[in-house]
Amino acid sequence: MGLLDKIKEKLLNRDSADTGFLTDDEKELREYEEYYTPQTGVADGTYAEFVISDVFAITGRGTVVTGTVTGGVFRVGDEVTVVHGSNEIKSEIMGIEQFRKTCDSVSEGANAGFWLKDIDRKQVNRNDIIKKHGNTDI
């Protein structure tokens, strides 16, 4: 049996807890994965947050907010809550736009604009948070 065969045999028959072949980075990642608990709602699509950077009133359309998605995925038609201080205002995403292109959805890290239903420009400010209804934590 050659050296390559011995290595293959050891890899195939090794215990899953055996970390002898892992680099330090791989060991650290494995430890992290064992203790990491994902944010509640990420898997079922209910967790999503958007931080507002600017607010516009567009004549004939309503209120548009721009900002960054800090977690999760937003889609057109999602029922959302705008957290403004201690007040929470219910709304719906009527449209999403990124760099002058209409989108059906945006995910974490994206800069976008949301057209919000039944929201007045004076009801929201910079740094307010938009979250999905299924998300109970800020």
Rank of each mutant, 00 (worst) to 15 (best):
D25T: 00
L22F: 00
G2W: 06
G41S: 06
E34A: 11
G113Y: 04
G62M: 11
T70Y: 09
D5K: 01
S107F: 07
L29N: 04
Y32T: 12
E88M: 07
D104V: 02
N87L: 15
T102D: 08
A17L: 07
S107A: 11
E26D: 01
K122W: 10
D78W: 11
D54G: 14
G20M: 08
N135C: 08
D54K: 15
R121Y: 11
Q123F: 01
S16W: 10
G41Y: 06
I93R: 01
D54L: 14
E49C: 02
V80Q: 04
T102V: 15
I130Y: 09
V106P: 09
A48V: 00
Y32G: 05
L11K: 02
M1S: 05
H133K: 11
N87W: 02
F21A: 08
K10C: 00
I119G: 04
L11R: 00
V55I: 10
S53I: 14
A48D: 11
V69C: 03
R14K: 12
G95P: 09
E92H: 12
D118L: 14
K122R: 13
L4M: 02
G62A: 11
C103R: 12
F99W: 10
S91M: 12
E92C: 12
Y35L: 14
G113K: 10
K101H: 06
V64S: 03
A43E: 11
K131S: 00
D54A: 15
T59I: 13
E97H: 03
K8M: 03
G71Y: 04
F114N: 02
D5L: 02
E31D: 12
K8Q: 06
S16I: 13
L12M: 04
D25K: 02
F50V: 08
A57V: 05
T23P: 06
I52K: 14
E9H: 02
E92L: 09
W115M: 08
D44F: 03
T40P: 15
M94C: 10
N13A: 06
K27H: 04
H133S: 01
G85I: 01
D104Y: 13
S107L: 00
G60H: 12
T136W: 10
A43H: 08
V83Y: 03
D78E: 05
Y47R: 15
S53Y: 14
K122F: 15
V69M: 07
V80Y: 05
W115V: 15
L116D: 01
R30Y: 10
G113R: 09
V42A: 13
A112W: 07
T63E: 03
T40V: 13
G77D: 00
D24C: 00
V76D: 08
G20I: 10
A43M: 09
G95C: 03
E79H: 11
N127K: 09
G134Q: 05
V73H: 10
E34H: 12
V82C: 08
R61W: 13
A57R: 15
D15M: 06
I52D: 10
D104K: 13
G20K: 01
L3K: 02
R100N: 11
F114I: 02
R61Q: 15
K122I: 03
T19N: 04
A43L: 15
P38W: 07
E26I: 01
Y47I: 04
A110G: 01
F74A: 04
V51L: 07
K8I: 07
T40W: 07
T70S: 15
K8D: 11
